[in-house]
Simulated assay, not measured.
Amino acid sequence: MFDINLISILLPALAAGVLVLSTHVLLGQQVLKRGIIFIDLAIAQVAALGAIVAHLNHDIEHLPFSNVWMPALFALAGAGFIAWLSKCMADELEAIIGCFYVLAAVAAMLMLSNDPHGAEMLKQLMSGQILWVNWSQLILPAIVSFIILSVIYLKPKLLDGSGFYILFAIVITLSVELVGVYLVFSTLILPALAVNKFGSKYRLVAAYSVGLMGYIFGLILSATLDLPSGAAIVATLAVSAILFRFVLAIKPKQKTATSVVNS
């Protein structure tokens, strides 16, 4: 049964989800358009690698905001590398990005193999801890998300050029910190995939709705049944996307049947 006292925990978690959705839905459609599906996993994993380096190096770990700027540096370097690859190896880009992700994941495992808290940190970076996010953690992501969305609104053509990779790296860095690698990937791809065949002018609204429903029901499911929050939201995002595609698929059939009856 749902405990009303959990609302104080769920509200900041839902706010974190809304912040992630605000930028990821837009960028996810661009990822799908470019056909570089693994880029989000790769950049998210590289950002996580930056967090691991900061954690293992005590000199860096004690510097102010090292948990933000260190992953950001790694993510920007990774995004720059992929942007360069997109120009000189476009026909093999998706395969190379996939390899890039695997290498970054393996590097993270090797670096944490002798750390007593390595397994827990790796789990947190992958699955995230969205259910335990507090309001103070959302201030920086909220500011950055507002700036990114404003830039996209004022200069939408940035998404079509190399500027996309820079925006992408910045957004992914903050998102990994909030929700983890798996949820970053799911938030980017599943809403975009759900509305991929939706030709309406309300396509963006539909994508945000799919994502929001996934986060709401995932958080409720996680809090009610004491399930891992990241995994629960990934599952409900997938269900939300599948249901939307199913409804979208049966609508044309209904119209066809109506037309036959009328004729």
Rank of each mutant, 00 (worst) to 15 (best):
M1C: 10
D3W: 02
I4C: 02
I4E: 10
N5Q: 15
L6Q: 15
L6M: 14
A13D: 07
L14R: 05
L14T: 05
V18H: 05
L19E: 05
V20E: 09
V20C: 15
T23I: 12
L26R: 09
G28S: 01
V31G: 02
L32F: 08
I39P: 00
A42Y: 07
A44D: 05
A44K: 01
A44R: 01
A54Y: 04
N57T: 11
L63D: 01
M70E: 02
L73Q: 04
L73R: 03
F74R: 02
A77C: 14
W84C: 08
S86G: 03
M89S: 13
A90F: 09
D91S: 15
E92L: 08
L93N: 11
L93R: 05
L93A: 12
I97R: 02
Y101E: 00
A105T: 06
A107N: 00
A108K: 00
L110W: 05
L110C: 10
M121A: 06
G128L: 08
L131Y: 10
L131H: 09
V133I: 15
V133G: 04
V133C: 03
W135Y: 15
W135R: 13
Q137T: 09
I139K: 07
P141I: 09
A142S: 15
F146V: 14
I147K: 04
L149C: 11
P156N: 06
P156I: 01
D160Y: 06
D160T: 11
G161A: 13
S162G: 14
G163T: 07
F164T: 05
I166Q: 05
F168E: 09
A169G: 07
V171M: 13
T173V: 03
T173K: 04
V176S: 09
L178Y: 03
V184Y: 02
T187G: 13
L188S: 15
L188N: 12
L193M: 10
L193N: 04
V195D: 07
V195M: 10
N196W: 12
N196K: 14
G199W: 01
G199T: 07
R203I: 00
L204W: 09
L204S: 13
V205R: 09
A207H: 03
V210C: 07
V210Q: 03
G211H: 07
M213Q: 05
I216C: 11
S222P: 08
A223F: 03
L227N: 05
P228Q: 01
S229N: 01
G230Y: 08
A232F: 10
I233L: 01
I233K: 00
V234N: 13
V234P: 10
L237M: 14
I242M: 15
I242S: 08
F244P: 01
V247K: 10
L248V: 06
A249T: 11
I250V: 15
P252R: 14
T256P: 00
